[in-house]
Design a protein around this nucleic acid. Structure first.
Length: 488
RNA sequence: GGCCCUAUCGUCUAAUGGUUAGGACAUCGCCCUUUCACGGCGGUAAUAUGGGUUCGAAUCCCGUUAGGGUCACCA
């Protein structure tokens, strides 16, 4: 059997789009599943859109996602170079071959003439605006003369009209087009660079790509590619056109309506395993109820036949849920490393908490967060004393006798020497029993005094993390501050 | 506008001619917990529409509607 070879072929626009990530991922999964090769090819044939550092950025995002490729610009391979801008001679050579066979021709028409053709056709309301094949009628001598005089030219595909072009798409089944609707596509631009269609077909052939897996936006240009394969007399690859990723309003996923770059999600603290899991499920499922996947499981289960036809809305809520799920599966030692990295970027970088303390924060918060940064943002009271107290909680939980209860509790704490979690528990119970009150009467104002809010981990987890001295000082401060707030 | 693709809960989807149309996210309620979260249980919620074919249609066919893609010397 022929070797499976697939490619991800982005143009370097500056970042990796999540739609591109999904395309890359499906290519990767398909290759790995079938013991094939996954190739990265950079389609940088538009000199006007050159962006400094775009390729490096793309490669970084791909690597962060764990999509390692077998061949590519920075890793090499037997089919290189993998940057189209370094393959210009090849495209030229094949275009000239097409000219010899009559399947392509030189076109010397100016932009102005093309413009006026278009306007004229628009006026006449022709169904499909097309080039009028004017230069196809040029004699050999005229062409020679133009070339000698360095008249700028492009090379166009000579499309024969009224032919049915039929191909099988793995996802969509049979798709039919009529060549009457296909323009004499430019193959080589006047700057000598190829257009997408030319470069793509030549490279896919030369690189022995077995399956072209790409976004649906390419479906309607596939007949052009089919024509090229036929005119070259080359064997065609299999095609699979993936459904699009959509905004919540069902338009094509765009920057205007949220983040589209992989690096944005990375910067916001999304885990790569969660992003991959989420994106994999946008348009594919294994046919069962499983939704939590790691990459190796995706590889095992993936098949193109189970990819959906309809576009999928990129739903942040589900991504957030998956992120939390993935986060909870990470062991605490690993979380500790991640938390320390994050802390370095915050105002608390000079706190120098020891690992034991950070580990207990992780332990206390793990079921309550969806992101690493929430080990800090959702419980700042572990890193600094509260600067304000939740007003609703004051109204609800701060009673006349709250200060005296807290003072009683504080007195018990002051007696403790190097207290452990159980000691706090004993001290707490002692106060409650002596005063013969419900636990809530003390727990609520205590939580408010120590954290400034009414929600969070168990009280004794908070106590042990804060420690004796901090508890005492926070109780003192809270009593003073809240009395003032209540007074006004 | 031409051509092409698509259409199941708000969202992601399952059901490839016979199911009380299933699951997940979100949402609502209850339980657990003297907080919150996690967890458990339950509820609301879908086959766009009109015709066929068939004993039987979400599923096959045709029309309509709606959405999307594409029609560049961009990819």
């Amino acid at each position: 059997m022929k070797e499976i070879r697939v490619r991800f072929a982005p143009s370097p626009t500056g970042y990796l789009h999540v739609g591109g990530l999904r395309t890359a991922l499906y290519n990767y999964l398909f290759a790995k599943k079938n013991n094939g090769k996954f190739i990265l090819r950079i389609e940088d044939t538009d000199r006007n859109r050159y962006v400094e550092g775009a390729v490096e950025n793309l490669i970084n995002s791909l690597k962060w996602c764990g999509l390692t490729y077998d061949e590519g610009p920075d890793v090499g391979g037997n089919y290189g170079p993998y940057m189209q801008s370094q393959r210009l001679d090849l495209y030229k050579k094949y275009a000239e071959e097409l000219i010899k066979n009559g399947h392509a021709y030189y076109c010397f028409c100016s932009q102005e003439r093309l413009q006026s053709i278009r306007e004229e056709q628009e006026k006449q309301k022709v169904p499909q605006i097309k080039y009028d094949k004017h230069c196809l009628g040029l004699s050999k001598d005229e062409i020679q003369e133009n070339l000698m005089n360095n008249v700028p030219y492009v090379i166009r595909l000579n499309v024969i009209p009224n032919q049915k072009i039929i191909f099988q798409d793995i996802i969509r089944g049979q798709v039919e087009f009529d060549s009457i609707n296909i323009d004499d596509q430019i193959l080589i631009k006047s700057d000598g660079y190829p257009t997408y269609h030319m470069a793509n077909v030549v490279d896919d052939h030369l690189m022995e790509i077995s399956h072209v897996i790409r976004g649906e936006e390419w479906l309607s240009s596939t007949p052009k590619h089919i024509l090229l394969y036929d005119y070259f007399n080359w064997e065609k690859p299999e095609f699979a056109h993936l459904p699009l990723l959509l905004n919540p309003d069902r338009s094509k996923l765009s920057k205007r309506q949220g983040d589209v770059a992989v690096e944005d999600y990375r910067a916001k603290g999304y885990l790569q395993s969660a992003l991959i899991n989420f994106v994999a499920l946008l348009g594919w499922n294994a046919g069962d109820d499983k939704e939590f996947y790691y990459m190796n499981e995706l590889i095992e289960k993936f098949s193109l036949e189970r990819v959906n036809k309809a576009g999928a809305v990129f739903d942040l809520q589900k991504l957030n849920w998956l992120n939390a799920e993935h986060l909870r599966k990470i062991d605490n030692i690993e979380l500790l490393k991640m938390l320390k990295v994050y802390l370095e970027t915050t105002q608390y970088s000079k706190l120098n908490y020891d690992d034991e303390k950070l580990l207990s924060i992780i332990e206390a918060m793990k079921e309550r967060v969806s992101f690493i940064h929430e080990f800090v943002d959702n419980c700042k009271y572990f890193y600094e004393e509260p600067s304000e107290y939740d007003i609703k909680s004051i109204e609800k939980n701060w009673k006349e006798d709250s200060p005296s209860l807290l003072i009683k509790f504080k007195e018990q704490i002051e007696k403790l020497n190097n207290p452990q979690k159980e000691d706090f528990e004993i001290a707490f119970n002692k106060v409650v029993e002596e005063l013969n009150i419900g636990k809530g009467k003390l727990i609520h104002p205590l939580r408010l005094a120590l954290t400034g809010q009414s929600t969070g981990p168990g009280m004794f987890d908070i106590l042990i993390i804060l420690g004796k001295e901090e508890i005492i000082s926070r109780i003192d401060k809270a009593i003073k501050t809240i009395q003032i707030i209540k007074g006004t």
